[in-house]
Design a protein around this nucleic acid. Structure first.
Lengths: 233, 233
DNA sequence: GAGTGGTCTAGACCACTAA
DNA sequence: TAGTGGTCTAGACCACTCC
């Protein structure tokens, strides 16, 4: 029984999900190979492949050539977070985004920051601090260093209207990057800007983007207390 | 010249990335349709489709039928976080994972928790608290409620050896879920278990998993101070 | 209505890897 | 070495949506 009605890859994916969920195929079990499933479902092998690849990307299946496909024993939950432009993030909440540049100064970054960037970075950086507001209330305090060796045009940008983030997106396409999420205690400076108590628990995003091996920018974003970054799994 | 050497979809993806990065195709620009690209690259349209779909998934391209494909104006950075079993997360750091169940008691969850779960949930839950350690030091304090209506077998599980997480993964496949990341101040209880000061900034994951509309479990995981969840973009 | 991406097919060859 | 997934092809039809 239980034939998948249509022959679309989505229908097949859904049927395979059902079999996993109802334990027809239990965690750790091998499932039939692509050709057999194609025969059973009455479709081309490529269609089965498309469905199984999707489930493999989702972490529900583990596939290896020759070894075959098995139901993942410990499905790795993958959470995909969208990191939008902050202005849009605020607008998506139905609030009015605001932006204020707080600091803009060129200079040499502290040593520990350079170490974090790695690579050959001994030039001049632009240090920019800014505050994003939602309906007038502080939302994110942003502390950023921009590598003027890689993005010399930044030296002529005031960043008093357009946030450095948006400007960089349009100007300097990056190839690689790292992002880290953590909780940090609000510094006196951050507490001042976010209008909270020093030491308050602050959700923090640290991001490095690179062009090849050359760092473009390093930024810390401190979200107002209580902020939650949410997604479905 | 810029001919893509091979005809694999990865080579084509790489070539398109290059054109975007070098601004041959600038943000907002339309790019040629699939057939034209296939002709240029000397491959089948399906191969171009595979490459462009991958870039679309990554957020670099925006595709719409009839309208065509354009370079994303504000590429939404998508960070994919792997949420492994904590035991494996610790082992992956080269540390020795440990587990200790702290509490196990059945009862009715507080009202605010029920509201967060939503839906028709008025049954008995199992409340489990546990501590994961890395090389003997506290790593994660976990506070969990399990819906015994959906997973009655949990009532017979001591959870003193296997963590509730691992047991649930094997026992109750979930269909939907929500996950939220935030920073919270350590409660007295959490501070005690994590051996830190009350009020310390704690990286927190809150997760709800469901079977259809029925909530299976709601869990808060409080990571030791200083924890960073990292990925590449 | 027409142009674009989305998908399916049937077949083929290739790449990896367990046995 | 043999079996499995990974990919490519050439063609076809479909679904969506802009004009």
């Amino acid at each position: 029984m239980s034939g998948p009605a249509a022959k679309t890859w989505q229908a097949i994916e859904s049927e395979v999900r059902r079999r996993i969920h109802t334990r027809v195929w239990a965690p750790g079990d091998m499932i039939p190979n692509e050709q057999d499933l194609a025969d059973e479902f009455g479709c081309a092998r490529a269609t089965v492949n498309r469905a199984l690849r999707s489930l493999s990307d989702a972490g529900l299946l583990e596939r290896r050539r020759k070894a075959g496909t098995r139901v993942a024993l410990h499905p790795v939950r993958k959470a995909t977070l969208s990191i939008p432009i902050i202005r849009k993030e605020i607008a998506a909440r139905g609030q009015k985004p605001g932006y204020r540049r707080l600091l803009r100064r060129s200079g040499v970054p502290p040593r520990d920051l350079l170490e974090r960037l790695g690579g050959d970075t001994d030039g001049i950086f632009l240090h920019v601090q800014a505050l994003h507001t939602a309906d007038g209330a502080p939302f994110v305090f942003e502390d950023r260093w921009i590598n003027l060796d890689v993005v010399p045009e930044a030296a002529e940008q005031p960043f008093d209207e357009i946030s450095a983030n948006e400007w960089l997106v349009r100007t300097a396409a990056f190839t690689d990057g790292e992002i880290a999420f953590s909780a940090s205690a609000a510094s006196d400076e951050a507490a001042d800007h976010l209008q909270c108590d020093p030491g308050a628990a602050i959700f923090t995003i640290e991001r490095i983007t690179r062009d090849g091996t050359r760092p473009i920018t390093l930024v810390w974003q401190y979200y107002r207390p209580g902020f939650r970054m949410q997604t479905t799994i």
